[in-house]
């Protein structure tokens, strides 16, 4: 028993390390790759590596590396919560994991049709946790992957594929007919609204996170100027130190990073559920089944 417990402890240590080390690595990468001359600036993701490919070079950017690190962190959290899980007895970790899974199942159960309950809860949970962790990365001063359009755009395309897959469930003919409704003249409008779904999802998330980081950078820049104007007369290092930048931007960050990031993650997964659920042609499938039953 004792030996088993110590084994569990060692594994727990490994998982806790899996949670924390990626964040530290991300911070170290940020510190190492930012040139010293660069003050507060608003720029896109830094490009670490360019791999030549036949069509166009494959870029390994800061956003990609950070999202890999976040995936490792989330995996560590999941493994830590489910380590030593048992059917009959439960400790706080198991309770926490069960609470999370129950909440997620409840959310999916409320917003999706019954066909999807079992299969889509893990996907929605994965999107939501990835989005929350990515947006909260900016609390550590690291480039949040969600403020890169490519990352969020990738998620939105994934959702778009799932929507189309569910629309195709009642056959290609029925799917194509959907574009000609209510009248055939509406075809271009319908195509535009179809394409607008992933675009608007991606831009909503990206714009919110990006605007937060831009406003934070502008406020930090303005506060540096203000403290130079107010306290610049102090001699030497005392005069150069930006006093107003200590702590004050954190108040804004509570709204822009924590609140906005979590709300956008919730909305992204909510829209994922609603769009996928709305794409499912349940009535048509039911009607078809009824017609088949009548014929036989």
């Amino acid at each position: 028993m004792n030996e088993k417990q110590s084994k569990l402890r060692a594994k727990d240590g490994l998982y806790i390390a899996m949670m924390i080390v990626p964040l530290v690595v991300a911070m170290i990468i940020k510190i190492v790759t930012t040139p010293a001359s660069e003050g507060i600036s608003i720029s896109g993701a830094r490009i670490f590596l360019e791999i030549p490919m036949p069509l166009m070079p494959l870029l390994i950017t800061e956003a990609q590396v950070n999202s890999w690190l976040i995936m490792i962190t989330i995996l560590g959290v999941c493994l830590f919560l489910t380590n030593g899980i048992h059917e009959n007895r439960g400790d706080w970790r198991q309770m926490g994991a069960e609470w999370l899974v129950e909440k997620l199942d409840g959310l999916v159960g409320e917003n999706m049709e019954p066909v999807f309950h079992a299969s889509y809860a893990p996907f929605v949970g994965a999107v939501m946790s990835l989005s929350v962790f990515s947006s909260l990365m900016s609390l550590f001063g690291v480039y949040p992957p969600t403020s890169d359009l490519n990352v969020v755009g990738g998620w939105a395309i994934l959702v778009f594929i799932l929507i189309t897959k569910n629309k195709l469930k009642a056959g290609v003919g029925y799917y194509a007919k959907g574009y000609l409704e209510p009248i055939p003249v509406m075809l271009p409008m319908n195509i535009i609204s179809e394409v607008a779904t992933p675009v608007s999802m991606a831009f909503r998330h990206f714009g919110n996170v990006l605007s937060g980081s831009v406003i934070s950078a502008l406020v930090a820049w303005a506060l540096a100027g203000a403290s130079a104007a107010l306290l610049g007369w102090l001699p030497g290092f005392l005069g150069e130190f930006p006093y107003l930048r200590v702590g004050l931007p954190a108040i804004l960050s509570a709204y822009f990073d924590v609140f906005s990031g979590c709300i956008q993650a919730f909305i992204f997964s909510m829209l994922t559920m609603l769009y996928i659920s709305g794409a499912y042609p349940g009535d048509e499938l039911e009607a078809r089944k009824a017609r088949l039953a009548q014929q036989h």
């Binding site: 831009f203 909503r204 990206f206 714009g207 990006l210 605007s211 909510m270």
Partner: peptide, 23 residues
């Protein structure tokens, strides 16, 4: 809050366009 965040979308589009135009 859900509805507000969706209503915010057009404003966010404008903000993205403005940020792109400036930076």
């Amino acid at each position: 809050i859900m509805g507000c965040a969706i209503a915010e979308t057009t404003g966010i589009y404008a903000l993205v366009v403005a940020i792109l135009l400036i930076f």
